[in-house]
Simulated assay, not measured.
Amino acid sequence: MENIYEELGRWISILYRQFQIYINNELKDLDIKSGEYIYLIKLYEDQELTQEDLAKIYYIDKAAITRSIKGLEDKGYIKRTRNERDKRSYSIKVTEKALRVKKRIYNALKDWDDLIASDVKDEDLKYMSNKLKEMSIKALSRDQ
């Protein structure tokens, strides 16, 4: 029998890669990539964040966030302005262009959820999510 952790990792990896392919295809005409949409989603929710905020929320290094934010800014989806509280950082907000595609992004995400989890009970999804969160926190804690 295969190692259960190897098996779990393989299926998580497959699901993640398939989602990236899906979201890239669904948002291709908007020129929004799988590595960018997550920042728009968080900015829709919180209205204004800094790159440091995003790094803490997603546990992604600042260099990767900088590349994605620069791409979104170049495409007109976000605007960066000097942070009033900390002149060394920038506040990030979505633009009108981003607000016009918000529903489209959320619909793509809902369609994906419907595709992969339509026959999965909500309590099972909550259980899996909680367990993956617990495992992720343990993995993150090893670096501290």
Rank of each mutant, 00 (worst) to 15 (best):
Y44D: 10
L49W: 06
L54G: 00
L30G: 02
D53S: 13
E52L: 13
E26G: 02
Q47N: 06
I60K: 15
Y59R: 09
D31P: 05
Y77W: 03
S89W: 02
D86H: 03
D31G: 03
L72V: 09
T81E: 15
Y39M: 12
E84F: 03
K75P: 00
R80Y: 00
I38E: 08
I65K: 11
R85E: 11
K62S: 11
Y59M: 05
T66Q: 12
R67W: 14
S91E: 02
I78A: 03
Q51C: 06
Q47L: 01
Y90V: 00
I38A: 14
I32E: 06
I92F: 00
D61K: 06
I41G: 05
Y90W: 05
R67D: 12
I60W: 05
I69C: 05
D61Q: 08
Y77S: 08
T50R: 05
N83S: 15
K56E: 15
T81N: 15
E73H: 07
N83W: 02
I65F: 10
E52K: 15
L27W: 07
Y59N: 15
I41R: 10
S89D: 12
D86A: 12
D61H: 01
K62G: 04
S91N: 14
D29R: 06
K79I: 14
A55N: 08
K75E: 04
Y90P: 03
K62M: 10
K28F: 07
R82E: 13
L49Y: 01
Y44T: 07
R67G: 10
D86T: 01
L49P: 09
D31M: 08
K28Q: 08
K75H: 09
K33F: 05
